[in-house]
């Protein structure tokens, strides 16, 4: 589904990602962990198509296509979803209106008729239940005046609505209390299917108690320096990033 080969990315001449390799297959959940400034969010942004970064080297293929041939909106319509770390406010635009526009743009791209109002409302009710969000939330303007938890739940709700093939959740757990964290994790788990995949970017092991990843990767200074299964995350939590720095340094010797 997603293949990243030798990716090198910089911003204003400053290298951030320095030769990264990653493969994500259908049905898999990958967790990417790493300290601040290791390049986690940059990786998510580059996959999603944010243009402020310079891709200096490497390839990303998504669903067999060169991802750099597609503008951000096309990637989204092809089923790529980014759950934002800092969801932005769009005053005056209700979530319902926002989602309806997004879904119909996608349907147009796929050659389908737009969803009728009734169909849309039904879908929205169904997904609201699924991700356990307050029903009045969708009448409010996108993220305007939302609490941190509401913003993140809204991201999961949008993910449920858009049914992505590949979802990248960029620190969706940051700033959440334990209840909100459970809601977010439940949503992700319910949406997990055989033919879709999820990349969970996180700081802490905590989220991985609820979303069980198939693979855990440690990102440090723009490279994935260690990959493993869930045990790796627990070890990391216990021993800290310094441990892994030392360990990889030893490996190099």
């Amino acid at each position: 589904m997603l293949q990243i080969k030798n990716l090198t990315v910089s911003i204003h001449g400053k290298p951030i990602i320095k030769g990264l390799n990653l493969e994500v297959k259908e049905g898999e959940v990958h967790a990417i962990m790493g300290p601040n400034g290791s390049g986690k969010s940059t990786l998510a942004s580059v996959i999603a198509g944010r243009e402020v970064f310079d891709v200096d080297q490497g390839e990303i293929s998504y669903m067999g296509k060169n991802i750099f041939d597609m503008p951000a909106e096309t990637r989204a319509r092809e089923g790529l979803f980014l759950g934002f770390q800092y969801p932005v406010e769009i005053p005056g635009v209700s979530i319902a209106n926002f989602m309806r526009t997004a879904i119909n743009e996608k349907r147009k791209y796929l050659g389908l008729d737009p969803m009728t109002g009734a169909e849309f409302l039904r879908l929205m009710e169904e997904k609201k239940k699924m991700v356990e969000i307050h029903s009045k939330l969708t009448n409010r303007s996108v993220n305007e005046g939302f609490s941190g938890g509401e913003k993140k739940k809204n991201e999961i709700f949008q993910m449920a609505m858009l049914e992505p093939r590949l979802a990248i959740l960029d620190e969706t757990d940051s700033g959440l209390d334990i209840d909100a964290l459970k809601v977010v994790a439940n949503g992700v788990n319910k949406l997990r299917k055989k033919d879709n995949a999820t990349i969970v970017i996180t700081h802490y092991q905590r989220l991985l108690d609820y979303i069980v990843p198939d693979f855990v990767h440690v990102l440090l200074d723009g490279r994935i320096i260690k990959s493993g299964n869930k045990e790796l995350a627990m070890e990391l939590e216990e021993k800290g990033y310094d441990w892994i720095k030392k360990e990889t340094a030893n490996d190099a010797v």
């Binding site: 909106e73 989204a76 932005v88 743009e105 996608k106």
Partner: peptide
């Protein structure tokens, strides 16, 4: 830029994104 990218990432093109944001405003 953040507002525009947020819309693009949901599959709404630039024209649609501006329309949406301006109408909300």
């Amino acid at each position: 830029e953040d507002q525009l990218f947020y819309c693009l990432q949901r599959g709404i093109d630039m024209e649609g994104a501006i329309g949406l944001i301006v109408n909300g405003y």
